[in-house]
Design a binder for these strands. Structure first.
Lengths: 156, 156
DNA sequence: AGGATATGCGTGATCCAATCAAGTAATTCG
DNA sequence: CGAATTACTTGATTGGATCACGCATATCCT
């Protein structure tokens, strides 16, 4: 199973301000969390745009590494199906994906990446170095710690 | 100084897929990082929309807790100045912010929140619980660890 | 001082993403 | 078979983002 990166509108670069408060352990952590999320979002967006992809296009292109229907895409990406129609149409116009009929349900379409879509997406992935670089800058023990702490922080 | 949350287009909810790889410590960490960033982005967006704010509006509203010029906003939010013009105009129409002349430079405008902008933004902040909740679910020692690990992972 | 240049902001055009309402075709259910 | 449901598309509309351009004000330079 692929890891699925969420990008809901990472086109923006706007910010939210949180009031200044004394630098307790909790608020220092909140600052660090924001800085991390921000860096991650920015890296993701930059990698997409380097390859002429909008964040939306990069998301869809990533999803269709394995064959998917429009409806699956819409559900996974939490957006309206007609939005997917539009995005897939643009990707198809660039010959990055292909819309195939589904023999088992003729209402449905199977979306797959074309070879050139594979290639472009591969390059895009290469240039999205942030998570790899982040992991690489830690020791093995630290990686395990960070993984556990992130999960605990999310309430997992 | 406030913490400034980046939101560049957190309107989207699309995803990027990363190829499946053996579950090494590094890739488990990459999954956890993504899950965390995703949860953070989603929470941020949900909090904004609960209060009738787009992510863009919430960002700007947050920034103008202290008086700011259009140009400062554009720079901080890494977007075109004319985008700020548009967003501030909408916030002003809702009487959440106010555009004041700058006596020291008559080309420039000072943007400030109105009382009702303060109120709305306060409520919004309350409902953006994610970072607080995340911090709260850890012990003091874990908070310090996580802060340090995030900083190290970012290469700080 | 006074003209060239730079700065701060606004306007209009255009594009993309997102949603909604409505429609078509195919499937499923009774 | 007919009604309801599902899968997707189309068209309209909104908002965010950028760009090209323009206006007013400031600054810089002899």
């Amino acid at each position: 199973m692929p890891i699925l990166y969420r990008i809901k509108c990472v086109d923006y670069t706007l910010f939210m301000a949180v009031p200044s408060v004394p630098a307790t352990a909790a608020t220092l952590l909140e600052q660090a969390m924001f800085a991390f999320v921000d860096a991650y979002n920015q890296a993701w967006e930059a990698a997409a745009s380097e390859h002429g992809l909008s964040t939306a296009h990069a998301c869809v292109l990533g999803r269709v590494e394995t064959r998917r229907s429009m409806g699956e895409l819409a559900e996974e990406l939490r957006c309206d199906a007609s939005n997917i129609t539009q995005i897939v149409a643009r990707l198809e116009a660039r010959e990055l994906v292909h819309r195939e009929p589904n023999p088992e349900d003729r209402r449905s379409r199977q979306i797959v990446r074309t070879p050139s879509g594979d290639e472009l997406y591969g390059e895009f992935e290469q240039s999205f170095e942030f998570p790899r670089a982040a992991a690489a800058s830690l020791t093995d023990a630290e990686r395990e710690q960070l993984t556990a702490l992130l999960q605990k922080a999310m309430g997992a």
